[in-house]
Design a protein around this nucleic acid. Structure first.
Lengths: 110, 110
DNA sequence: CCTATACTTTACTTTATGGTAAAGTATCGG
DNA sequence: CCGATACTTTACCATAAAGTAAAGTATAGG
């Protein structure tokens, strides 16, 4: 089961057009190596790896090493769950609101 | 009817924790003025206005002037539609993929 | 009217993060 | 083994976007 914390991470991850495009590539083209994933963009491998890590950390993408190749795979269930939450706009917004407000209030001087 | 283009804008808008918090405030606390919306954060009014504009442009939030006060309102249907798309991961990903790839390919020299 | 309020605009400054190059590590293929 | 390949790490840079201050506009209230 995914938690609302992952919802936040997913929204952060999807906040960049480039990363959304990478997700689409994986969703469209199936599993592929990091190099192949990065190929259409004017990106060095380190940059592509950084973005992959953000996507992986959010749960939208999975990856594993097969020899010297990093195989990247789209994880449909992650966005399906995020979508479910947004559609019903319930648990996700409620709980993360409280967390965020707590931080903000601590920061303010009153 | 909202288009997939708005889905892109919504994801861009929700890509910042601060803006997500603002959406939660409006969802939680109902309609409020820009000043009241901005109050919990260490933000000047111009900065808050910028973020409001991004949210408004995406359709997640609506606003109108009532005298000298800008009243901000959460629009539940926007995120509901985005959620529906993500949950069914179909139209949104398909169509915006083509658009984005076209731009990328034009940029690359081959 | 006159002052205060509530933005809004303009013209910047600052900083976070997206990007790179270069060197390092691990695996493959002959 | 040995060179080539496919990342990975480290250290740094460049800029877009988030932020500000200051001045401008419009409305409210006495």
């Amino acid at each position: 089961m995914v938690k609302y914390r992952d919802g936040e991470k997913m929204l952060d991850a999807l906040g960049l057009p480039l990363r959304r495009s990478m997700v689409r590539r994986l969703w469209h083209g199936g599993a592929m190596s990091l190099s192949k994933l990065a190929a259409p963009y004017e990106l060095t491998l380190p940059a592509a790896l950084k973005h992959l890590r953000v996507l992986e950390d959010s749960g939208i993408v999975k990856s594993h090493k097969r020899g010297r190749v990093r195989v990247c795979i789209y994880n449909p269930s992650a966005l399906k769950e995020l979508g479910g939450w947004l559609a019903s706009h319930s648990a996700f917004w409620e709980s993360s609101f409280d967390r965020f407000e707590a931080i903000i209030n601590k920061k303010k001087k009153n």
